[in-house]
Design a binder for these strands. Structure first.
Length: 563
RNA sequence: CGGGGAGUGGCGCAGUCUGGUAGCGCACCCGGCUGGGGGCCGGGCGGUCGCAGGUUCAAAUCCUGUCUCCCCGACCA
């Protein structure tokens, strides 16, 4: 491709409303442009990146035995009503009416469509198992689109679905997809973790997320050697805390006006971890519960909901005041509510907790002796906690893929059944597997950019090689570069030739912004030795020059050594 | 939905408080020079100041309404 013919609107300055690095660089490099909140267009060079990722996805899906299909984005509401999602998923689902007043939705994912067709078509166990996938647009009315293509309202997703006779079959399909996913992210050149994830309201029985660490990530992942989990579900051994000794009995102390953990800990000269923080909640079905955890810990709402087995909300001040004590001074001792004690609260020890009296706390409190409780792991892990003796770190990540064991969640309501060997009707066991190519692109930018711009991994760069001729138009450098371009173009490497009439600074700056992995520079200096200078974009490392005569092999060799 | 910020040539901004001929840098066009890191000189094109209404002799500027975008939070099958 000649740069003079490529629509590549690079910008010297970042857009005023961009903060995330990938957002800034992808716009500056001329890869994407915005049309509305969470609505992005891909310009030619950006779309090439996207398409290269898509090609990898397609190859690996086919290698895993999945067959490509394409299903509508615009769908009748009926299947969504039958699975309950029409009423349950809330405003994130785009809903509309056609001219006949029929209810329609814009699909946010394609379980309904896939299951609908499979239900029509599959009759016998002999037809199972199989897997389908598509590369299709998804529509979600996100409450807050952000950071360029990281979180958008319309995006392409690779979504695959497996259909099996039973749970064992699903496990095999799931494992096969997992292997494909591992290969996909390796091939795309991004750093990634596969983490345990919350199964959420889907009520499934297993899910993993693929997380690419980057500063603009929206999720947090807890990491230790041999351990990686979304902070939403992570468990770890708490950093120990020095507890004052338990007293013979709880002893009241005056704490006038001190309602926060920090204030009470400072006033009594104990570490925050020696306090018992009381978090009263109203649990659906179970009523008022006091969750107690170490003062230096925080409740993890998702883990708490999982322990409770259902949703909850924080108790209102009036409920606390009526049923327990004055807000700010409540505690488990003598409180007439059941106590859920976090696992990280050690037994024994002399804890400090609210006395259920205004301006008063208790010290020397010992769980069990002074109040009954049941246990649960409901706290958010903190950096420095340990897993199997190793301290964990917490890293921001962007979710680039998720795999999920659906079971019969969709096949049952949509009647996707088959007759087994004994002539009995059985629901199909399903799994679903999603990947967002745009997020892979953004994560790659975030992970590999430097001060000059993007440094694409080899596999997903917009072009493999950029040739930069210096000198004036019509000069010897231009001619030599042109010949080099013609020669390399016959190879399977994609080549971009900067044939613009621009100065060297501008060409180098644009080349580094766009981030093609290998740059070949043809200038007066290199012409003297009948070579083109070679530089790797990653690290801007100078490589051995390539001869202008029969350049192919040498270019290939430089290329093969790149990351 | 709560909090904060912003809409002025393609991009980035000033001007708004205190109403009075719409400005700067970059980009773009023409001519020339330069040619290994966004170079130089000269001459140009381009803007209903988000939209609607109001106040005024006069509105980018004041008032009312409205739309849009960004950031933080909530939310995120």
């Amino acid at each position: 491709m000649r740069l003079s013919e490529l629509l590549l609107p690079t910008e010297r300055l970042p857009p005023a409303d961009a903060e995330a690095l990938s957002h800034i660089l992808m716009v500056r490099a001329g890869l994407i442009r915005q049309m509305g909140a969470g609505l992005w267009s891909w310009l030619p060079a950006g779309w090439r990146v996207h398409q290269r990722i898509v090609a990898i996805l397609r190859e690996e899906m086919e290698a895993a035995g999945a067959q490509e299909v394409l299903m509508p984005v615009l769908q009748p509401a009926d299947p969504w009503r039958r699975t309950g999602r029409y009423d349950n998923v809330g405003p994130e689902l785009f809903r509309l009416r056609d001219r006949r007043e029929a209810d329609l939705v814009l699909a946010m994912t394609h379980e309904e469509a896939m299951t609908f067709h499979v239900a029509q078509v599959v009759r016998s166990y002999r037809e199972l198992p199989f897997s389908l996938f598509q590369l299709q647009v998804k529509e979600r009315d996100e409450p807050r689109p952000r950071a360029g293509v990281l979180r958008t309202r319309e995006f392409v997703m690779k979504d695959a679905y497996s259909f099996d006779r039973d749970q064992e079959g699903l496990e095999r399909s799931y494992a096969r997809q997992m292997e494909a996913y591992d290969r996909i992210f390796d091939r795309c050149g991004v750093r990634w973790y596969r983490v345990e994830s919350d199964v959420g309201m889907m009520g499934g029985f297993g899910a993993h997320e693929y997380m690419a660490p980057c500063p603009a990530g929206e999720d947090e992942v807890a990491l230790a050697p041999g351990y990686a989990a979304n902070v939403e579900v992570a468990s770890a051994r708490a950093w120990p805390v020095d507890l004052p000794p338990a007293l013979d009995a709880p002893e009241p102390v005056d704490t006038p006006g001190q309602t926060t953990v920090e204030e009470v800990a400072r006033a009594l000269g104990v570490p925050a971890g020696a306090l018992l923080k009381a978090y009263p909640i109203m649990s659906e079905g179970r009523g008022l519960i006091m969750v107690c955890l170490r003062g230096d810990h925080r409740v993890n709402d998702i883990k708490l909901a999982n322990v409770l087995g259902g949703p909850f909300r924080p108790a209102r001040e009036s409920e606390i005041a009526e049923r327990i004590g004055p807000p700010g001074y409540i505690g488990p001792v003598g409180a007439n509510v059941s106590v859920l004690l976090d696992d990280a609260v050690a037994e024994g020890g002399g804890y400090v907790c609210g006395a259920n009296e205004l301006n008063r706390h208790l010290r020397g409190v010992s769980p069990g002796r002074d109040f009954p409780f049941r246990r649960g792991d409901v706290r958010r892990v903190e950096a420095g906690d340990t897993v199997a003796g190793h301290a964990i770190t917490i890293e921001p990540c962007i979710e680039v893929g998720q795999i999920f064991k659906l079971g019969t969640r969709y096949s049952e309501p949509l009647g996707a059944t088959f007759l087994d060997e004994h002539g009995r009707e059985q629901p199909i066991w399903m799994g679903c597997y999603g990947i967002g190519p745009a997020r892979i692109a953004a994560a790659a930018v975030e992970q590999h950019a430097d001060d000059q711009g993007i440094a694409w991994p080899r596999a997903i760069a917009p072009y493999d090689v950029e040739i930069v001729p210096l000198g004036r138009e019509g000069g010897a450098e231009r001619e030599a570069a042109q010949r080099l371009y013609e020669e390399l173009r016959g190879d399977d490497l994609s080549v971009l030739l900067d044939d613009r009439d621009a100065g060297p600074g501008e060409k180098f700056a644009d080349a580094e912004l766009l981030g093609c992995p290998l740059r070949l520079t043809v200038g007066r200096r290199s012409l003297e030795s009948e070579t083109a200078e070679a530089q790797a974009r990653r690290g801007r490392a100078d490589l051995e020059a390539v001869p202008l005569q029969d350049a192919r092999k040498a270019v290939r060799a430089r290329w093969d050594a790149l990351p």
